[in-house]
Computed example of a mutant assay.
Amino acid sequence: MLETITVQDSVELAVVERSGFIESRHAGAAVVLSSDGEVVARYGNADALILPRSSLKPLQAIACITAGAVLDGEHLAMSTASHVGTERHAAAVRDMLTEGGLTEDSLACPPSWPSDTAARDEMVREHGEPTRVRMNCSGKHAAMLRACVATGWPTDGYLEPTHPLQAHIREVIERLTGEKIAHTAIDGCGAPVYAMTLTGLARAIHRIGTASDRSPFALHRVAGSLVRAVREHPWTIEGPGRPDTIAIETLGVFAKGGAEGVMVMVAPNGTTVALKMLDGGARASTIVAATLLARAGALTADDLTALTAALSLSVLGGGQPVGEVRPAPGL
């Protein structure tokens, strides 16, 4: 059976301090690429396989656009989002579907409550029920359906690994990572997710994050347009007050977290980091990624200070801060 990074191949990436006592530690692996795509730092085994989970969405979104889905602005950004299900997010997904002659019933992702507390409370007060457009991956699914409509592929069964859309997505992923897919699994939303090395994921995200929407190459133009759309509409990628959105708004980076402690981040100058927390916890992923970018010279100490202040990293005792989640001393 294939497996991810082992305990022995991991390093300490973050600690949790409470009242002067280190209460918990997050171990994992990370890799940093320079602005020109060269590996400049490794922490742990960055060549071990991981499932990128939602950090794969930028690659899947690019594949959908190159397959024919015509999306721009907020809708393009939504195609790579892991949104929190606010009404604004849901409305954008509905518009994506309507413009393709589709309905919410076309979505094959599972119904879900919003993860945004205010949106969920409002739905409960109105005696609402979980819906597919509120599922955090619904933007990705809408983009997949739009690609099918544009190309003439059947929308039924669009999540099956044998469907022509998924075959195209695999080809694009292999082209961007420079690796053959090692294993196919099923993500939480029902779509295929593919095992790759952390270094391969970093390589793909670097290519996306440094692409120009004026490139003579179609794939690069799509990637450049996607990154620009996310930076112009950071609320789409996750939601107000959420780590990815905060990082994009505060630092101007391109950031995309994934379940089970995966994070990718590209600095404005193209320096890129990809990391995986071995325990699957995401609470330290954003600040660790930014710290690694700063160590590589792509962000400043003031940038880290601003990001730390914006993120919820305090450890509380009696409702008051008594410690914090912070990068490991070795970083």
Rank of each mutant, 00 (worst) to 15 (best):
T286V: 11
R132D: 06
R326W: 11
A309R: 14
E129L: 11
A14F: 08
M96N: 02
D95L: 14
H183P: 01
T197Y: 08
E17S: 09
V84R: 07
F21Y: 13
A195E: 09
G330P: 01
L176Y: 11
G209I: 00
S312R: 15
G257I: 04
V273N: 00
V84C: 12
D47P: 03
T305P: 08
L307A: 04
D36E: 13
I5A: 08
H220I: 11
L49G: 00
T199E: 12
P58Y: 06
R42Q: 10
V273H: 02
I5P: 00
A147N: 05
G37N: 01
E23I: 09
V193L: 05
R125K: 14
C189T: 02
G68P: 09
H206L: 02
P243M: 03
L307K: 01
G258E: 08
T80E: 12
N136M: 03
W235C: 06
S112F: 09
S82H: 07
P234G: 03
H163F: 08
R228G: 04
K180C: 13
L176E: 05
A259L: 09
V40C: 04
G319Y: 10
T184N: 10
P216D: 14
L102R: 06
E122V: 11
L97S: 03
L2T: 13
A90D: 13
G152W: 07
Q166W: 06
L102W: 03
S225V: 05
T131N: 10
V11N: 08
A306H: 13
I237S: 00
I186M: 12
A77G: 03
E179P: 05
R231V: 02
A30S: 07
P321S: 10
S24R: 10
R134Q: 12
A296P: 05
G28S: 06
A267L: 03
A167C: 14
G281L: 13
D303Q: 01
R295I: 07
V16Y: 12
L278Q: 14
G188V: 00
G239T: 00
D244P: 01
I62H: 07
M196T: 12
T86F: 02
A229Y: 05
I246Y: 05
A48F: 09
I287V: 12
F217A: 15
T272V: 01
G319Q: 10
I169W: 07
E3K: 14
G281K: 10
H75E: 13
L159R: 15
C137F: 04
R18Q: 11
L56R: 08
G252K: 04
P111M: 07
V322G: 09
G101A: 09
L56D: 08
G330E: 15
P130F: 04
T245S: 11
R231N: 09
H26L: 12
H141F: 10
S314R: 15
D36K: 11
M78R: 05
A142H: 05
P321F: 06
V266I: 07
S54K: 06
I186R: 12
T155G: 11
A119K: 06
V15E: 11
G73D: 06
A92V: 15
R207A: 08
A147E: 02
P164M: 07
M263C: 12
D121Q: 15
T4Q: 15
G157L: 07
K140C: 06
V230F: 05
L275G: 00
T272M: 01
T308G: 14
I181R: 02
I205F: 04
A267N: 08
V172S: 06
P58E: 04
S285W: 02
A77N: 05
H127D: 14
I50Y: 00
H233C: 06
E171I: 11
